[in-house]
Amino acid sequence: MGGYMLRRALVAIPLLIVVSFLTFILNTLSPMDPAEVVLHTQGVPRITDELLTETRAALGMDRPLLTRYWDWLLSCLRLDFGDSYVTGKPVWSLLGPAFVNTLQLTLVSVIAVILLSVALGILCALKEGKLLDKSIRSVSFILTSMPSYLLAALLVLYFSVKLDLLPTNGMDTVGSYILPVAVITISYAGIYFRIIRSSMLSNLNEDYVLFGRACGLPERKITKRILRNSLQMAVSVFCMAIPIILGSTVVVENIFAWPGLGTLSVKAILARDFPIVQAYVLVLAAAFVIVNSFSDMLNAWVNPKLREDR
């Protein structure tokens, strides 16, 4: 057990290093010269070659790549991602709070997704083939085929404009969580409840259910076993869902002007504010790797079989 955890943690470290290196060289792949961008954004009227060399030196761009990477990595570890080209403020002062906001949105959404999909999954599996099962599945089918921004627009039209119940943007009150979380939940629960449902149904046909019944165990105990087994499968699925949802709140954040990473990054991209884009990619990729490792560990903890298979 401990061995597996350690191994899983050790796998994450080289991955983090490679990911950070790739993020670092993103900048050098850019068709635009960062020095030029800096001068442009600072509103320098005439850009001379001399000025460019000077700026490059100031940015430390004349040194070898690996040295620069090392320095960059060290400063990143101190949460120093440089300054925004556009506002001149330290990147982390913008990114940090946004990251927290995104995490909050993700966390609330993940909980809602899990609750809704487990509930619907069990309900549909118990009522398999009945009208309820069929109608839930058809509705979810259409909802998952709907772009989330369209869904968001419809919800806003109804709840905020027509009923005037919920705020349409920002994250000032608890109420402002409702619409963004609803959009994310509807999109993802539609996928995940089907997995829970089919996993429960396939468990129903497993031999252990037959043997349990053949031993005369009451149906209550059998259902408990089926639930346990399907939820175990569900744990793996949800473990994968957390990083996926964390990485894909972009659209929803932008629609509801949620002051998170998604909004920040799109603004930065449109303004060509590289340090922010770079830090955004690094922070999210690192978070993704770390969350992934944690969810694998959680998964292994719940599914004893996984620990030995690998």
């Binding site: 068709p31 990485g247 894909s248 884009v277």
Partner: peptide
């Protein structure tokens, strides 16, 4: 593949748009 998949899809797309432009 592991490395490629360790970037969340949306982040990867945003990174590429961020560098190469919209």
């Amino acid at each position: 593949c592991d490395i490629m998949l360790s970037f969340p899809g949306y982040v990867m797309i945003l990174a590429i748009i961020g560098i190469l432009g919209v």
